[in-house]
């Protein structure tokens, strides 16, 4: 894993769905969650394709934000092409949301990217901040004041997404570039997690569980306990927390 970065992940099919259509990437400097859609296992195929295109970028030491944008565009085309070639996969698509270390002006920066309604949060100085804007009708209605955030949680527009890879909606990712700050922690998750857990509970777990893999596991466990109405996936990425650069040998201390 890249210097100063530790990460861990967990995923669960949940209590209602027959299969897990989420895919995730824990690379050396690139991390992502993809939530697939489309029947007959096609959603799994689409989300795996999204993640595979990002994985191909991981490990490059000169990664740029536009490389991430290009990989997502390629994934979009590949998923569309597969949908055309295989009738069983027609109409499949995926969200793609994540975080990567890129080089800008000679120094490392994070790029946060998002297509769809999976999310990236940042947890630092005991404050949880949502870094992405959901591409969903509910989020658009909240933005215009037609719904409150609380109403949006129960709105019938909640699951109508306005951008995704592979389907007939725009696929352009939002991107946000900023410098890393030692001690920060990121959570990448599918909507199966945020649909079950409120921000307070997410923050409490990120505060209490120091090891990234254990924190991801605890978040997923709680979301499944709370209902597990969808597949649940979490990736936790720590930056500059001291200690070793490893995915699974973290000291159990609060950051």
């Amino acid at each position: 894993m890249a210097e100063g970065v530790r990460a861990g992940a967990a995923t669960d099919v949940g209590r209602v769905r027959a299969s897990n259509e989420d895919s995730l990437l824990v690379g050396t400097a690139l991390f992502a969650v993809a939530d697939g859609m489309g029947g007959h296992a096609a959603g799994e195929v689409a989300s795996a394709m999204a993640v595979d295109h990002l994985r191909a970028l991981d490990g490059r030491d000169d990664l740029r934000p536009e490389d991430v944008r290009a990989a997502l565009a390629e994934a979009d085309h590949a998923i569309r092409a597969a949908g055309r070639a295989h009738p069983g996969q027609a109409g499949m698509g995926a969200t793609a949301t994540g975080l990567g270390l890129v080089r800008v002006a000679g120094s490392p920066h994070w790029v946060v990217f998002n297509v769809g309604d999976s999310r990236v949060y940042r947890y630092a100085d005991d404050v949880l901040t949502l870094l992405t804007v959901d591409h969903s009708e509910a989020a658009e209605m909240v933005a215009t004041g037609a719904l409150t955030a609380e109403e949006a949680r129960y709105s019938r527009y909640r699951n109508v997404i306005t951008r995704a890879l592979g389907v007939r909606v725009p696929s352009e990712p939002d991107q946000w570039v900023f410098p890393p700050v030692p001690g920060e922690r990121f959570l990448l998750c599918s909507d199966g997690l945020t649909g079950e857990l409120a921000d307070d509970e997410i923050a409490a777990v990120l505060r209490a569980v120091a090891d990234p893999a254990a924190a991801a596991g605890e978040l997923v466990r709680r979301a499944v306990l709370a209902g597990g109405r969808d597949n649940v996936t979490a990736v936790v990425v720590d930056y500059g927390h001291g200690g070793t650069s490893s995915a699974d040998t973290a000291p159990r201390t609060t950051p």
């Binding site: 002006a105 120094s107 404050v127 901040t129 700050v181």
Partner: peptide, 18 residues
């Protein structure tokens, strides 16, 4: 060393120049 992340999803890009 710009700090921008505290401001949430509408915050500016932060670009570090040395």
């Amino acid at each position: 060393d710009p700090r921008v992340t505290d401001r949430g999803a509408d915050a500016p890009h932060g670009i570090r120049l040395a």
